[in-house]
Each structure stands twice: as C-alpha cells, then as structure tokens.
Design a binder for these strands. Structure first.
Length: 130
DNA sequence: ATTCTAACA
DNA sequence: TGTTAGTA
C-alpha cells in the first residue's frame, strides 16, 4: 500500500482555481486579503490545497445566496472552533437573509401594484379624452 | 509563461 | 473588484 504521502495531488495554482470557478485571480487574492482564504506559500507564490478549494466553494455559494464576505468569513472562522456555534450562526444568518428578501419582495409587490394602478388610471384618462 | 504586490478606477 | 505596471 502507498502509505499516505505527506502531500499528494491536491495542489492548485491560483489560475487553476480561477479558471475552474469562473472568477478572476484578483478575486481570489481579494478573498485572501479579507481573511477568507489562507493558502500556503512557496516563496511569494500561493499554493492552494483541497481545504482552500473547499472554502472557496463555500465562499462562492455564500455570495450567490447574497451574504457578505464578512458573514461568510465569520461562518468559516467557526469551522475550526465551534462546529455547533457555526450551525447556530448559519441559522441566524439564513433567517436574517430570508427576512430581508421577504421584506424586499413585499416592497417590490407594493411598487408593482402602484405602477399598475398608475398605468390603469392613465389608460382611463386617455379613453375619456379620446 | 505565471504569479506577486501595489496603486488607481 | 478590474486593470495596469514592474518583478521574481
């Protein structure tokens, strides 16, 4: 058997990850500058491992769901510490996000009704006039 | 060719 | 975050 090689092929260059996830290398460096990623270094060059790749996936998913990098950072930080607290934080953030989206949806519906009303009144005026 | 930092948009 | 400049 091949006893666990210290470090196998779970190495990635910044350009590889950028290509794989359709983001810029600049974005990846930006996430690192915000503390969301902490790749190893060989000199000044970043070496990403599976762990970093997994975190990047979580970062992108979080962004897609509308969370801020701060939210995502707070969440990721708890992975190594309180797994339980991490779940609680996630639940709170999801509720918060859901509440905001529902509020925005209500506002949007109100605005849509208002615009339809205006359109309706405008059409009625045209008919009376014409 | 590839990455890095820094600075400006 | 995008882009650009000057490197290692």
């Amino acid at each position: 058997m091949t006893s666990t090689p210290p470090e196998s092929q779970d190495l990635f260059a910044i350009a590889e990850l950028a290509r794989e996830f359709g983001i810029s290398t600049r974005a990846i460096r930006f996430y690192e500058s915000k503390g969301l990623l902490s790749p190893e270094r060989v000199g000044a060059t970043r070496i990403f491992r599976k762990r970093d790749r997994a975190r990047l996936i979580l970062i992108l998913r979080g962004k897609r769901l509308g969370f801020t990098l701060r939210d995502i950072s707070d969440y990721l930080s708890l992975y190594d510490a309180d797994r339980a607290q991490q779940v609680n934080l996630l639940a709170d953030k999801v509720d918060e996000r859901l509440a905001l989206l529902e509020r925005q949806r209500d506002d949007l519906e109100t605005t849509i009704r208002e615009l339809r009303e205006i359109k309706q009144l405008a059409q009625e005026r045209l008919q009376k006039a014409g």
